Simulated scan of single mutants.
Amino acid sequence: MCNCGKFQHDEIPCVHAIVVVKRNNITKIHPYCSDYYKSAALANTYELPMVPMPDKDDWSVLEYVLE
């Protein structure tokens, strides 16, 4: 945790956290990053095929939604 709040918000080490990690002679900062920023998360993003939406003219919209 850091007082600046960036470490908690972004889930990647802020400059303050990096200084602490370096002072503790930790060379791998990767474990301190959220899984969202790791290559496995990126690969999972494209795991399922993305189907494009049909043309807007082919949409079936309920009448009360249009109102």
Score class of each variant (00 low, 15 high):
35 D>I: 04
49 P>E: 15
35 D>Q: 09
2 C>P: 01
66 L>Q: 15
59 W>D: 00
19 V>I: 11
47 E>I: 04
50 M>K: 14
16 H>A: 05
24 N>S: 12
54 P>A: 12
3 N>Q: 07
11 E>T: 06
65 V>E: 11
60 S>M: 13
41 A>D: 10
30 H>Y: 14
23 R>M: 05
5 G>P: 11
31 P>Y: 08
50 M>V: 13
62 L>R: 02
45 T>N: 13
64 Y>K: 12
60 S>F: 13
60 S>I: 14
35 D>A: 09
64 Y>Q: 10
59 W>A: 00
47 E>W: 00
42 L>W: 06
32 Y>M: 14
58 D>S: 08
18 I>M: 13
36 Y>T: 10
63 E>N: 08
39 S>G: 06
50 M>P: 01
35 D>L: 01
14 C>R: 05
65 V>P: 00
30 H>N: 14
44 N>R: 11
51 V>D: 05
8 Q>I: 08
36 Y>K: 13
1 M>D: 10
67 E>S: 09
26 I>M: 15
16 H>G: 05
52 P>M: 09
30 H>V: 14
30 H>P: 00
56 K>D: 02
59 W>M: 01
56 K>Q: 13
46 Y>M: 10
51 V>Y: 11
67 E>I: 00
21 V>W: 06
45 T>A: 13
62 L>F: 01
14 C>P: 04
2 C>M: 01
40 A>L: 11
38 K>T: 13
34 S>Q: 03
16 H>N: 08
61 V>C: 01
49 P>N: 15
47 E>A: 15
61 V>T: 06
11 E>R: 15
25 N>A: 03
32 Y>V: 07
16 H>V: 02
58 D>L: 05
42 L>F: 13
18 I>P: 02
44 N>L: 12
49 P>A: 15
29 I>R: 03
